[in-house]
Design a protein around this nucleic acid. Structure first.
Lengths: 135, 135
DNA sequence: TATTGTTATACTCTATAACTATA
DNA sequence: TATAGTTATAGAGTATAACAATA
């Protein structure tokens, strides 16, 4: 069995290494996280706060910054006037695409260096990681 | 082949999940990072700033907080009066031990749920992750 | 002069408490 | 009354610029 401590620490360091590839050095994890969330589906400020595990006021501030930068936009919910719908803009999509391109480039190069056995090992672990990420 | 994007994103989410296990909710990553650094070997503020990739003033502020909390101590360098040596205290060691224990507990439970094949896959990937972490 | 550490100041992200509008 | 969003205010971490002490 591999050393548990080492495996755990390695996962954190590799994740940090991946995260260091950013399209724009001024984009924080907080902002990028929200941008990635609303990329596929518009969401309310409250649900974004919950999924990013921050408080509603904190999320509100992040949304203000993203909105001022033209990366997301707010719109009133047609069914419930209390609610707001946050969606991504074209500029937001472009920034995400660039960030993803850089991260993918680095990661693709790393994957390309692997043996067939190592690639297979990753395939085996994807369902495991998927479960853990949801906990 | 597994989806490269998903694998990359999952690694980040799992790392984040692991990181959320802290002995003391008030200990930030910044402070814990320094504490882990000086656990094995005393170091200067400047070298700590470099290895943690923050500026010297930022590191200085972190060290002030850790010192006030009694987790590290500063001492003059005997050879060069300009330099300072930062070392961990007994209280600092205790806090690290507790943090490590909690992280290990969560991760151990996750590993215990795996099949033999999944465990073997992790063993295969440890050398790979070790290489990536150093890049 | 160059190096090491620190102080001064400001900006971002986070939080708790309080307020507004709507259901 | 309860819910969704926001505003007010404060604490922690980070940065750049400037300063002090020593080599």
């Amino acid at each position: 069995m591999a050393d548990e401590d080492e495996l755990r620490i390695l996962l954190q360091r590799v994740a940090r290494r991946i995260r260091s590839n950013r399209a724009d050095g001024t984009m924080s994890d907080a902002k990028l996280g929200v941008l990635f969330r609303v990329e596929h589906e518009a969401a309310s400020p409250g649900s974004l706060a919950e999924r990013e595990r921050v408080t509603p006021p904190s999320m509100n501030r992040t949304l203000n910054t993203l909105e001022q930068a033209g990366l997301v936009k707010r719109a009133p919910d047609p069914d419930d006037a209390r609610k707001v719908v946050v969606s991504i803009t074209a500029a937001g999509r472009e920034l995400i695409a660039e960030t993803r391109r850089l991260r993918t480039a680095w990661f693709s190069h790393r994957l390309a260096e692997l043996t067939a056995e190592e690639r297979a090992a990753f395939d085996t672990l994807v369902p495991v990681l998927r479960r853990w990420a949801e906990l």
